[in-house]
Design a protein around this nucleic acid. Structure first.
Lengths: 250, 250
DNA sequence: GCGTCCATGTCGATG
DNA sequence: CATCGACGTGGACGC
């Protein structure tokens, strides 16, 4: 593992190191006093201050202050990094097109620059996602309700793929929308679109005949919990909510 | 400006530096070979590889690989960093409560560690946000339509605050929903909620009497553009779309 | 604390 | 390319 590291370099030294690092495909970490300006989907300016600039070989650029999970400024992967010395400052610029965006970081002082080749080990195994919730329901359908039979996941419809499609104990078609966490009204809207699409497709239970307790196509929202507004909308539509976590309680 | 920087430190040296940096409230950048595990709202594991760990004095922790704008793992601000040497590795752990979450990074090798005090200069001036769009409309209402008069922004309603409330040339109440970029159907749903709330509040134009071309309360979606699905929903509801950018075209 | 909504959201799948 | 939906979304603001 080769790490390059320079302390308090001159702008010219820093420039050399940056260009080498870009050439090697290194990940760069740069501490220094700088101003930052961005122009693209929006535009922003940031006055002088000490910050951390991270430059990735895939084109991503991140400007971090001492606070927050989010960078104060950034450029997405696919951008191109360029460095130069201009007007007595080290200018690092990252540009991309579609949309056209430019991030410019101007360093009056570079305190520390490190670069390292970083490869592999990018595959994360994540548990507790919506996909896990789907798996859990397919394996244990009674968690939705007794007699529920899943027939298909990601079933296509004119409104997009529905998370789980199945039938209930009476043989009534059921659309299940899954959410890994507490949801608001937008999730009910999503479920409603799938139910409407399926009713049209099956030619049953549209607004004209679904005014009693037999909706012909049922909608079930599976989520740990729902907001009040979402509950209202669920009631309006005659949909059900099943409280379920993506992973079993410990 | 004081920067601490060590190259290829022993675990014990790295531990000292980390504890000093935590004590000083420094921002830390740590290159090394590590495994990462996370447990909290979800759970994840990441095998050995070279990565960049950033530790912020506000408690944020970021694990970055060579790719992506997003950290592969992280901990939000408000967490607490702890470092220790365990089983021949440098273990950096960041924990928080509510929800209970733990991020653990275990280094088999530390290649480079830098720490710097980073203060001030955190205030970003951003242009092109939804707020700019609102300002633009209030100053030039004719951009929405001739004769439009804004009366209130962030007007409260039972469905939440509507972006702009006003009246059109005929004196008909208008609810304007603003989006800084192209929107999908959810924005129409949002607008519909506000319109419904206002109709109820004013006691006019509900479903019973709004079946002709006089809806009593109009809804206008201002956004650069809308998706097909959103356009459908707009037409269903009898709402209008006005194509407008958050900032004037160059 | 929860609810709501914006974001330069980012990211991946899909047509 | 654009659309659509998930995300450990994050973050701000209001109640």
């Amino acid at each position: 593992m080769t790490v390059t590291s320079v302390h308090d370099p001159s702008h010219r030294e820093a420039l050399w190191e940056l260009e080498d690092a870009f050439g090697r495909g290194d990940l760069v970490s740069l501490f220094g006093r700088c101003t930052v300006s961005y122009e693209g989907r929006a535009a922003s300016d940031l006055g002088a201050g000490d910050r951390l600039l991270v430059l990735k070989p895939d084109g991503a650029a991140l400007v971090h202050t001492d606070e927050g999970r989010q960078p104060v400024n950034w450029q997405p992967p696919g951008s191109e990094h360029h460095a130069a010395v201009r007007e007595g400052r080290l200018r690092v610029r990252s540009t991309r097109s579609n949309p056209d965006e430019t991030l410019t970081v101007r360093f009056s002082d570079v305190h520390q620059l490190s670069a390292m080749a970083v490869t592999g080990g990018r595959d994360l195994t994540l548990h507790g996602s919506e996909e896990d919730l789907r798996t859990r329901i397919v394996e244990r359908p009674e968690l939705v309700e007794p007699g529920f039979e899943p027939r298909e996941t990601e079933r296509p419809s004119s409104a997009g793929p529905m998370d789980v499609f199945g039938v209930d104990a009476d043989g009534t078609p059921v659309v299940v929308e899954l959410k890994r966490r507490r949801v608001g009204p937008d999730a009910v809207g999503q479920l409603a679109r799938y139910v409407r699409a399926l009713r049209e497709e099956l030619g049953v239970g549209d607004a004209g005949e679904a005014d009693d307790d037999s909706p012909a196509v049922r909608g079930i929202l599976v989520a740990p919990s729902v907001t009040d507004r979402a509950a209202e909308r669920l009631a309006d539509r005659g949909f059900d909510h099943v409280a379920l976590e993506p992973t079993p309680e410990e």
